[in-house]
Amino acid sequence: MIEKIRFKGSFYKANARYVAVKSYLRYKNLTPNVLSVESTVKKIIVSKSSVARFGDGEIRLMRGEDIEFQNASKELSLRLQEVLRSNEKGIIICIPDVFSNLNQYKDKAKYIWIKHLAKYYGYWAKSLNSDTIYYNAFITRPYIIYKSITLANERFNSIKSVWHEKNIIIIEGSKSRLGLGNDLFDNTKSIKRILCPTVNAFSKYNDILEEAKKIRKDNVILIALGPTATVLAYDLHQEGYQAIDIGHIDIEYEWYKMKANWTINVPDKHTNEALDNKAPEHVSDVTYNLQIIATVL
């Protein structure tokens, strides 16, 4: 999650603490090993892996802190810890590629991650295994955070290969509307959708899981439900599905098409990282509405 950025507080103080903590963890050989975006996408395609992703929001929830669109709970904290520390075959654990170097990111993104890591770097280190190879959570963020956008098109095309000629089920917030108005999923065989709460989706977790378990296992499941997606991908993998926490890929694609310099509102879609975050309750797109097979609200 990219927080809504307003430059307040002492960046220099945060940066000094970030540098000190990073140096200490590097000295202790506790810096996590995160593979590249390209290696991560290749792993998903070749191995048909499921994907559980962690970012700043998941860590805060694990510590019992609310985030903008999900209230904390003991159950959610414990489930996220379980997934992060798991070592299940066929599912990859993805974390942000921010622990060794931030130079590839825009200044705004660097500022956000320095603030976060200054406070939570120790908790990340305690929660991760230094002997584990982690995959890259930024597979769903190929564009907005990077200084250079030269690889964006290639990375979008690469991630599209994950669902090429596949029947997909999108489990998403009711206002997320992945693929509406763009060609992100035009290479699929078919699209069906299960709509869920835009805010506090984990409060309906059991109902969402039971609805998802009605899906045929020859479908690829793409989940865009914030931290709920992390847990849901793990549980559906246990049930024999390929389930991918796809995060903000659609909004990133919209920003890429718009040539946006930073997070802005996308018409007709919930854009929680934009300052002007508004989306209509309903849309009149016939194809989209016909794709909805269930609603859990």
Rank of each mutant, 00 (worst) to 15 (best):
K217N: 06
K257L: 13
E172W: 11
G179V: 02
I244W: 13
E211Y: 02
P227S: 08
D285S: 03
V199G: 01
R177D: 03
K217I: 00
L61V: 03
E239S: 14
C94S: 08
A16E: 08
S158P: 07
D131A: 12
A72R: 04
I67C: 07
Y111T: 15
Q238V: 01
S73N: 04
F7P: 00
N167R: 15
N71V: 04
I93A: 10
D276A: 06
P142Q: 08
K8P: 00
E68H: 13
Q242T: 14
N71D: 14
L35C: 06
L275T: 03
A201P: 02
G90E: 09
R26V: 05
K175F: 09
I133T: 15
S10P: 00
I149R: 14
A201N: 05
K48D: 04
K115G: 13
I144M: 05
G247S: 08
E172M: 12
I169T: 14
F69E: 09
N71Q: 11
K74C: 01
Q104V: 15
I144Q: 00
E88G: 07
N200R: 05
A72I: 09
A137V: 05
S23A: 13
K110Y: 09
V199R: 12
G226W: 01
D107E: 15
L30K: 15
K108D: 15
V19F: 04
L225Y: 03
V83F: 10
H116C: 07
I292V: 15
L25K: 07
K126P: 04
K74F: 10
D218Y: 02
D250G: 09
I194T: 08
